[in-house]
Amino acid sequence: MINPDLNLNLKWESGDKSSTRAGFGDALTQLGKTNSQVVVVTADLKDSTKVNKFADTYPDRFFDVGVAEQNMMGVSGGLAAAGLIPFCSSYAMFSPGRNWEQLRNTVCYSNLNVKIASTHAGLSVGPDGATHQALEDITLTRSIPNLMVISPTDYHQAYRATIAAARHKGPVYLRLSRENSYAITTSSTPFELNQPQLLRFGNKATIVASGLMVGEALKAAEEIDAEVINLHTIKPLDITTINQSVTKTGKLIIIEEHQRAGGVGSAIFEAYVQAGLTLPPTKHLAVSDQFGQSGTPDELLEAYGLTWTHIVTAFESFA
């Protein structure tokens, strides 16, 4: 049963899809209107990271550094030190991929108020191939002190997360997708950073997902009577909501569009150990130490084991 308190879109499976990057871009344009301190920096990816509307509306607060992600991160740090709230946008492969050390030392070690918005995370980038499919960015970001890591599931949630990120003082990483996702949340769905959302009630297992994987989790949950938790805030990680659900269902399934090493699964396992809790029987669906390749998002998610049917199979394999 879908959680009635969250004003979710009950027709999500048949409704129009949209992308988290579009939600980010629209929220940014809104922020431009309401907050004169918000500025945007991009590295020659204005259109595909969806900052073009902001650029057209507020040209004096938009800066294109060219294909230079290391400089983009440093410039963003300087803009923050001058009292502004910079959002810097690129693809996750290049930011934090290319500029990880600038993110760590210039921005996070200095605790600067920079928002790192990175689209094209995960396999669902599709035909561009493995060079552009960031499967390591959660590991890279959640290991840096002071940095908050957010992975919204759909357009509306990305919109809300962007507004919340601007309000939060300190560095924030926004993990966004190129591909459209199901519109599961609505503009009236509550959103709080750090607060995982229990989207669906169930009894037989708890599925934890974020980003595009939330739709897969909800589909599988219909089949297997599972609870679904949307872990939009990966760091800091709130283990209480997950553990409460697992205490009831007895089984945990984690699915993520990311390498197995160091991502959402790792974060949850670490949190269990840290809290002195015992992990229930668990299945972890992730990319298994492989690179991606060209293909449609559907083909890739199928080939790498990241669809709702894989969740069902994983559930059936519990001893």
Partner: peptide, 15 residues
């Protein structure tokens, strides 16, 4: 890194 940081600062002040 400080060279980019200084550039961002100067741009922030100019803006």
């Amino acid at each position: 890194q400080g060279m980019s940081f200084a550039a961002g600062l100067a741009l922030g002040f100019k803006t």
